[in-house]
């Protein structure tokens, strides 16, 4: 069956099986920033933003995304330039192996879209569904706070 949707502001039509999860469909169509982790909604490696809300794509039926507006990590940069959030992750060493990073970035991006002035507890809550097995959580949380600060200045 056909699935019509928007990914990173581009209109797309994907050929899918009714049984596919959103994770299957994203990876099969080249959005490999969407990582395959636990498959049970626990780790957040597969996080994507669907209509403004971060969800676990591994437990999200792809058919639910008809006409949806999706953001993946590929969509965070503009014309080859990384977003402030991505820059801060690099600058502050919030990445080691990087497997959790696309999910972390999208959870943080979804937060900042809704709340450009987050408190520390809001950032911790937003990232609480993203497991990291190497960097830990302090640096990613600090990077999101720093990005929010700089984005305010940039406006």
């Amino acid at each position: 069956m056909k699935l019509n949707l928007k990914v990173n502001s581009e209109n797309k039509i994907f050929d899918i099986d009714v049984r596919d999860t959103l994770l299957d469909v994203m990876r099969a169509n080249g959005y490999t920033s969407v990582k395959h982790g636990c498959e049970t909604g626990e780790c957040g490696a597969c996080t994507v933003i669907v209509n403004g809300a971060a969800v676990n794509s591994c437990i999200y039926p792809a058919v639910k995304c008809e006409d949806a507006d999706i953001i993946t990590c590929e969509g965070l940069e503009t014309n080859g330039k990384l977003s402030i959030l991505q820059e801060k992750f690099i600058e502050m060493g919030a990445i080691q192996c990087g497997y959790c990073t696309p999910g972390m970035l999208l959870s943080a991006h979804a937060l900042l879209m809704k709340n450009p002035n987050p408190k520390l507890k809001d950032v911790k809550d937003a990232l609480s569904g993203n497991f990291c097995r190497c960097t830990g959580y302090k640096k990613p949380v600090d990077a999101v706070m720093a990005a929010a600060e700089q984005m305010k200045g940039a406006k």
């Binding site: 909604g41 957040g44 996080t47 809300a53 971060a54 676990n56 959870s107 569904g129």
Partner: peptide
């Protein structure tokens, strides 16, 4: 609701 796992699960 705030104690209900993660943002991603709460959104769905």
């Amino acid at each position: 609701a705030a104690k209900f796992v993660s943002v991603q699960i709460r959104n769905a």
